[in-house]
């Protein structure tokens, strides 16, 4: 599985850190180097503020530690980037709990339905009995999409009619999870822009409904974030955190040339861990996010 991540990250690496390796290889430690480093980081969606403070920190350390070799400077950068995302931990389920309720939320087109299915597949392979809850009743054929995925990964899908009340779908899903003795319910919700007041309110209502059926539910509330998203990702995360008690982020579509640099921006501004990454269109294309592996992968020499 990690081979897969390495493969997809290699595209990122060749683009992003391949760039950085070149940068450190061909430059002495100089203002030009720092300028170019800034450029590469910003082009990876790391964000202006995060980039400026990151480069400043590295610059200061290089000066204070009297570093002359570019290789050593590169390691300082690697360390500092690692520190930025070190708070990320793979998702650990509480084994004492009989039923775990996971909810996926996010803006339109970020990949919620696909990710819900991938999560179902992932946890079923770990021995969980998963039920998928089709609470995206708004998007045309959103329910059918989840049903097809359910068939593919062998998880039961609880669904109502299109445009029905998503709260009722969640209620039914949790009820049937008890009667079928399922150990996990993954709730797929409708895409909503974080600036839409009423839709964010609706999310709050869905949380209440889940919480009334199962103690403390949803136990995990995961924000699905498209890796090609720019600085708006921070605004998305902030808004969803306000309403939805986000417990983690899943970064999707990392198989493009997108660098997912926004992870660094999110982690330096907000306190929310990245749990998984999505790297393709099939069920297996999901993996727990490992911060160390992520940074190491980025700094490995390109093939």
């Amino acid at each position: 599985m990690f081979g897969k991540i390495r493969d997809s990250l290699s595209k990122t690496r060749n683009n992003f850190m391949g760039h950085i390796s070149n940068l450190f290889a061909k430059n002495d430690i100089s203002d030009d180097l720092w300028d170019e480093l800034e450029e590469v980081l910003i082009q990876s969606d790391v964000g202006v503020d995060t980039t400026l403070s990151l480069v400043e920190t590295v610059k200061n350390r290089v000066k204070e530690e009297h570093i002359k070799q570019t290789d050593e400077a590169k390691n300082v950068l690697k360390e500092e980037m690692g520190k930025l995302i070190s708070s990320n931990k793979p998702l650990e389920l509480d084994r004492k709990r009989l039923l775990t309720v996971v909810m996926v939320v996010g803006v339109n087109g970020s990949g919620k339905t696909t990710t819900a299915a991938k999560l179902a597949w992932f946890y079923q392979n770990k021995g969980e009995k998963v039920i998928l809850s089709a609470a995206d009743t708004f998007r045309a054929a959103g329910i059918e999409q989840l049903q097809i995925w359910g068939e593919r990964c062998g998880a039961a899908v609880i669904a109502h009619r299109p445009n029905s009340d998503p709260g009722a779908v969640i209620y039914d899903s949790l009820k049937s999870a008890y009667s079928r003795k399922a150990s996990m319910v993954i709730i797929d919700t409708a895409g909503r822009l974080h600036t839409k007041y009423n839709l964010m309110r609706e999310l709050e209502k869905l949380y209440k409904i889940a919480g009334k059926q199962v103690h403390d539910a949803p136990h995990e509330s995961l924000l699905i974030l498209d890796a090609t998203t720019g600085q708006n990702a921070i605004s998305q995360a902030k808004h969803f955190m306000e309403t939805a008690k986000i417990s983690g982020v899943i970064l999707t579509k990392l198989d493009g040339t997108a660098k997912g640099g926004v992870v660094f921006a999110i982690n330096s501004e907000l306190d929310v861990p990245v749990r998984f990454i999505g790297t393709g269109e099939t069920l297996e294309d999901i993996a727990p996010f490992d911060a160390e592996e992520f940074v190491n992968g980025l700094f490995e020499n390109g093939n």
Partner: peptide, 12 residues
């Protein structure tokens, strides 16, 4: 094109 796209928009 999604208006939220970041730096990669150019490559897309």
């Amino acid at each position: 094109v999604d208006a939220m796209t970041g730096q990669d928009a150019v490559k897309v």
